[in-house]
Design a protein around this nucleic acid. Structure first.
Lengths: 270, 270
DNA sequence: CCCGATAGTTCCATTATTCAGAACTCAATT
DNA sequence: AATTGAGTTCTGAATAATGGAACTATCGGG
C-alpha cells in the first residue's frame, strides 16, 4: 500500500488476486449474502464486507435492482430470484450435461442406484446432474451444490485426471474437514489418487456421510480445460464392497462414452 | 445525446430505465449470452450488444473471470457454472419456498398430481418448486424457468392478486404468443382475471400445451410486495372439468395455509 | 415524553474505473 | 503476397464509484 514496497509482490507470483474491478467487488457481496444461512441486515453485511457505509449501500442497491439480491419486508437481504432464471438457462444448455444425459440414464437403469454427474470448479465439485430411481427428487438440493473434492467419488475421480502440479495446488488450498471416521487426509488422499490413476475408478466408502458409498470414474476434456466425473451412489447395505467392484467397469464405460461424445461434438457448431 | 435536447425526457416519466451503472451493463451481456440458444462468438455478441469492441472485450473478460460466463475451447461464450452454485443456495434458503414446502407435499398427496409453486417476477412466472408423484423428475427443466403469465395457472392466479394499475402495466408490456387454440388474448385474459378474483381459482385449460390442464390459486404477501400461486397440473384425460372443480377448493386451502404461514414467519428472525 | 443508541439513507468533492476508438496481432482465404 | 475477418491491447478522456460526514428514522428504556 505504501510507495516504497511493490518489488517483491510484483512478479504476480500470487495469481489469486482477481482483477475484475467493480464486478469483483459486487460478486464478493453476492457471495456473502448467498453463503449466509439466513438473510442479513445491512449492518451484518457491513461488518464482514469491509466497505464504507455509503459505498455498501449503493452496491447493495444495484444488486437488488438487478434482482440478484432481494430485500425482505424487514429490510434484510436475501439471494434474489433472478439467479434461478439465469441458472436454469445455464443448466439447460450446458453442453457437457447434454452429452452425458443419455449415458447417465443408461447407468441408472443398469444399476438401479442414483447416478451423479459433476465437474471440478476451483477446489469444489459442482453437481451438474442427478438421475434417481423412482423416489420423488428434491433436485436443487443437490444440483448446483458445491461439494468438497476430497470426500466425494466424483471429486476424487476429477482430481485423478489432473497433472500433479494442479493437483498439489488444489490439495494445499483446501482445508480438510473430518466428516466421518473414514474421511481422508491430504496424505491418504494423495495415495488414493495414485490408485485411482491406475484402476480408473474412485470410491467413496462412507467418507462424506455414514452409510453412503459410491463408485466413480473421471471424465475430462483432452486439454484438461475441464475435468469431472460420473458416479453411482447408494446406501452401504446395498453397495457392498463386491457391488462397488462389480459396478466399477460400467461406470468407467459410461465415462468413456461421455468422453467420446464430447470429442464428436455438439462441438464445433453444427 | 446532443446538448440541445434533454428537456422533454427529463421528468423521469419513463421509469423503466435502470440505474445500475456498470453492473447493469454487465447484466445485459449476461442476459444476452444466457438467452441465446447456443454459445456465442465474440463477434455475435458484439453485433447485438452495441458496445465498442475494446469495451466489450474487457466486460466479457470480467464476467468470465468471475465464472458467470465460460469460454469454450473454440472461444465461444456460454453461461458459467458459478450461476448454478449461486442459484442452488438462493433456492435452498428461499423463505417462501420453505414455508410452502409442506403444503405442496400435502396437496400432492391428496391429488396425486404434480404440484407447482411459482412467483411473479416482472412479466413472467418463475417456478420455485415442483412436487411430482413417483416418476423420476427432471427438475431444472422446470424450476427456475421463467414462463409466460397469460397461459399458466400460476401466472393468472398471481395476476388476479394485483391491483388494476399493475395488472394493466404488465398486460400491456407482454406480447401474447398463441401456443394452442385455447391461448388467451389480452381481452379474454382481463375477463378471466375478474372471474378469478371472484372464485379464487385460476384454470389453465390447455392454453399453454395441448393435453395439459391445471387449477391454481393465488398466494401473496399482505403488501403485495410479491405475488405468486400454487397449482395442480396434470393430463387432460385425468383432469376432467369436474376434477378441476373438485380440486379447486383444496388448492385454495393450500394457498391460504401458505399465506398464514408467511404471516407467522420464519419471519422476523427466529 | 424525551434521551441516547442503533440502523439505515443521502450528499458531494475526490479518485479510480470504465470507455471508445484506433492500432495491432494472428490466422485463414484467395 | 495481399486481403479479410476475428480477437486483443493500448491510450487519454469521460464517467461512475468511492468514502467520509451529515442527516433521518426507529427502537428501548428511564
Amino acid at each position: 500500500m505504501s510507495a516504497t514496497d511493490g518489488d517483491i509482490m510484483d512478479k504476480n507470483e500470487s495469481a489469486d488476486k482477481r482483477e475484475t474491478g467493480t464486478l469483483g467487488k459486487l460478486m464478493v457481496l453476492l457471495d456473502i449474502v448467498t453463503h449466509a444461512d439466513s438473510p442479513m441486515r445491512f449492518t451484518d453485511i457491513l461488518a464482514v464486507a469491509g466497505q464504507p457505509r455509503g459505498t455498501l449501500h449503493r452496491q447493495l442497491g444495484h444488486l437488488t435492482e438487478e434482482g440478484l439480491l432481494e430485500v425482505l419486508a424487514d429490510g434484510r437481504y436475501a439471494p434474489g430470484l433472478r439467479l434461478l432464471d439465469l441458472a436454469s438457462r445455464s443448466w439447460a444448455r450446458n453442453e457437457f450435461r447434454l452429452i452425458a444425459e443419455p449415458h447417465l440414464n443408461a447407468l441408472q437403469q443398469l444399476t438401479g442406484e442414483t447416478v451423479h454427474l459433476g465437474v471440478l470448479r476451483g477446489a469444489s465439485v459442482i453437481y451438474l446432474d442427478k438421475v434417481e430411481g423412482s423416489q420423488p427428487v428434491r433436485m436443487y438440493s443437490q444440483i448446483g451444490n458445491a461439494s468438497p473434492i476430497y470426500c466425494t467419488g466424483v471429486g476424487k475421480a476429477a482430481l485423478s485426471a489432473l497433472p500433479d502440479e494442479r493437483l498439489d495446488a488444489i490439495i494445499s488450498s483446501v482445508s480438510f474437514q473430518r466428516f466421518t471416521e473414514h474421511t481422508l487426509t491430504p496424505e491418504t488422499l494423495r495415495r488414493e489418487i495414485s490408485d485411482i490413476r491406475h484402476s480408473g475408478n474412485a470410491f467413496d466408502r462412507e467418507e462424506h456421510e455414514v452409510g453412503i458409498r459410491c463408485v466413480a470414474a473421471p471424465v475430462y476434456s483432452e486439454d484438461l480445460s475441464f475435468v469431472g466425473g460420473v458416479s453411482v451412489t447408494g446406501p452401504a447395505y446395498r453397495l457392498t464392497f463386491e457391488r462397488l467392484e462389480e459396478w466399477a467397469l460400467p461406470v468407467r464405460r459410461a465415462a468413456e462414452s461421455i468422453m467420446s461424445g464430447m470429442r464428436i461434438g455438439l462441438g464445433p457448431r453444427r
